[in-house]
């Protein structure tokens, strides 16, 4: 089988490069987002982050995003993995991989998925700075938000 391989190497392994070689036969491209912890945000230095999720709802929302992506885009497979807990600078917090027959759809889908995930999936990050800590609150504009009269 073309997609199977086994090798010996003394080099360090590049997970992304390996993963890209195992794509469905009908595909032409995999786009992978490797999102990781940034040291400086608006000039303020982050020491580390903590991610927390409403786990069952987050999984449901992630599943919905993947279902929607399959309706909207010409893609084959999607993988989304989000890490929780404490993360150091440079550690990967999220991986989104999309394979598609043509690269354009894979790029567009990956970008759409991260934008939607940041809007809808109930996960929060807490930034720990040298001089304080804060739960980051995203952009609250959602169609389903309840508006109260007061």
């Amino acid at each position: 089988m073309k997609t199977s391989f086994f090798e010996l190497t003394t080099e360090s392994l590049n997970v992304g490069a390996i993963a890209r070689r195992v794509v469905p036969a009908g595909c032409g491209a995999t786009v992978t987002l490797d999102g990781y912890v940034r040291q400086f945000t608006k000039g303020r230095e982050t020491l580390y982050l903590v991610y927390e999720a409403y786990e069952p709802m987050a999984l449901r929302e992630m599943e919905k995003l993947i279902e929607q992506a399959h309706v909207q885009f010409e893609i084959s497979n999607v993988g989304i993995v989000h890490r929780l807990g404490k993360l150091k600078i440079g550690e990967t917090s999220i991986v989104i991989s999309v394979s598609a027959p043509h690269r354009r759809a894979a790029f567009e889908t990956c970008e759409w998925l991260i934008k939607e995930l940041k809007r809808t999936v109930p996960i929060w990050k807490k930034e720990f700075y040298a001089d304080g800590e804060v739960w980051v609150e995203g952009d609250a504009s959602r169609d389903s938000q309840i508006t109260f009269n007061d």
Partner: peptide, 8 residues
């Protein structure tokens, strides 16, 4: 009840 999400 939660604040606007900030994952990713």
């Amino acid at each position: 009840i939660f604040t606007a999400v900030s994952g990713g």
